[in-house]
Amino acid sequence: MYLFIITGIALLISFIFNPKKTLQGLKKAWNKFKNMIIPLTIVLVLVSFALHFMTPEMIEKYLSKGNQVIGVILASILGSVTMMPGFIAFPLSGILKDNNVSYMIISAFTTTLMMVGVLTFPVEQNFLGTKVSIIRNTAGFIMALIVALITGLVFGEIL
């Protein structure tokens, strides 16, 4: 809601100062949006499947057992191919913690969830190009593993 108000005010101020420039800006916005519609629809299709098959309950079931190494690998893969909003992801992390899932595994899951987007790849590709998108996602995955490792060390879960 605040976002609508801010956008409205920004548009109004912009329009008062320079109507022509404002229209130009709106046209740019529309062009960007138009280019994104088809890839975004594909992402929505993928996400709608993911939300059905990868429920919080299922993720909880998979991450609540097994050893640390397998757990971290599984968590980072699940985090990469899943898509869920923060208001589901963090309570889920809380539940995982209560089920004695290690911080290292939770860290691997949340970081890949945020950094790596396999499902959102079509949209990312639309904006960044294929090469940069691949680099960014790969780097994000490696980074998530290192962050998980550091988390495990700090909480004394490994070594």
Partner: peptide
Amino acid sequence: FTEYAISLVKIVPCAFILVGLFEV
């Protein structure tokens, strides 16, 4: 699908307009 699409409609148009204004 519809649920996720609706959640995007609440944010995405504003974001694009602000980016457009930024560009000009």
